Amino acid sequence: MNISLRHLRAFAAVATAESFTAASRQLFLTQSTLTKTIRELEQEIGLTLFERTTRKVSLTTQGNAFLPVARRLLNDFELLLSDLREKSAGSSGSVYVASGMAFASCVLPEVLKRLKRDYPCIHVRLLDDTSGGVVRRIESGEVDIGIGSYVGAVGNKLDKRKLLSARLGVMFPPGSQLPTGPLSGQSLRDLPLMQDESDTSIMSALEQCLPELWQKVNSKITVTNLDIQFALIRAGVGACVLSALAASHPTAQDLPYRLLDVAGLQREIHIFTRRGVPLSPAAFTFLQVLEEVLPSIAFHPGVTLTV
């Protein structure tokens, strides 16, 4: 069957105007061209769609039955084109993001609030993970964008762009007797520290700068989830090495926090994307909004923005 949008538009226009002359003006066609188009449609489906008299054109019974179908097909096509245009412009579509919890909690609420306001048709699926988990998810193609620290060997599969650096420090339970003077790596050994999982950026930074730390610290608790870390600190279970990014979290700003005075002891936050795989317009829009919002976030003084 060779029915095209041209045939459907011609049929709907004549049915609405009840006149070949008026419909031809609306479609910017000659009347003979429009008449030929309608004749092609009728021959193709084997039905007479219009009754033609000297005074007007009216639909046959078959034409009345076909009209809502034609209008629905034309409307569906216009909606499809509109959706494609929006996706091409980055104003709709889906983006999958994996992020460390500190960044997700401190930055992404403002990003998603802006997206909801300016791009309500963009759907964001957000996953939280350790930095090692973020890298694995973006490497496997599970997500479009990863936000976290460089942990392990990414190799040549990913591109990365630095967003910020955050010094490390110690968050203490309320009412703790804080150490006097600079907080050094040596002083960590005397603190009741809780430990992170090995594939986190915190553990990676500590192992690089203070390789013997966990041999000296009598740590009996390993916890990675940031909300649980805050809860345990607040309950007085122990102290925890956290980044200044995590210390920027709104629910933790009342907890005592001291930056460590150890050169190079920090975590860097990057955007990870798959090398050679172009970002969708929706993902590109997400990153644009992220970079616009980032300078407005109230970070702890230990955080330095790159972008």
Rank of each mutant, 00 (worst) to 15 (best):
G185H: 10
Q215T: 13
K87Q: 15
L127Y: 00
Q208E: 12
L191S: 03
T273H: 11
S243T: 14
L29H: 06
L115S: 07
L127M: 09
V237E: 08
M203Y: 01
G46C: 01
V307R: 13
T33R: 11
L84D: 12
T16L: 10
G175L: 00
S165E: 05
M101E: 14
F20R: 13
L27D: 02
A22S: 04
L164E: 01
G152W: 14
A244I: 07
G132D: 04
R52K: 04
L206G: 05
G100V: 15
S296K: 00
S140K: 08
T33C: 04
V95P: 01
A98H: 02
T35W: 11
L210A: 05
R85G: 08
V293F: 01
T306M: 02
E292C: 02
A98L: 05
V293Q: 02
L242F: 04
Y96E: 12
H300L: 09
P173S: 02
R161Q: 12
I269N: 11
I269A: 09
E78P: 00
G264M: 13
K56M: 03
V111P: 04
I202L: 08
V124K: 11
A283F: 10
L183K: 10
L305V: 05
F103D: 11
P179N: 07
K220W: 03
Q215W: 09
L49Y: 07
S105R: 11
A247G: 04
E86Q: 14
Q177F: 00
R234C: 07
R136K: 05
V170G: 01
Q43W: 00
E292Y: 03
L47A: 05
F284W: 13
S105M: 04
V69Y: 14
F230H: 12
I145K: 13
V237L: 06
L193Q: 00
A70M: 01
R137D: 05
T16W: 06
L67H: 00
T37R: 11
H249M: 08
N64W: 01
P250Q: 09
E291S: 05
Q43R: 00
A282K: 08
L47S: 02
G236T: 06
S58Y: 01
H270C: 15
V289P: 06
T273Q: 14
P295T: 05
L27S: 02
A298S: 12
V107K: 03
F172S: 03
E44F: 04
S91V: 09
S82A: 15
G133V: 03
V262T: 06
G181S: 08
L49S: 04
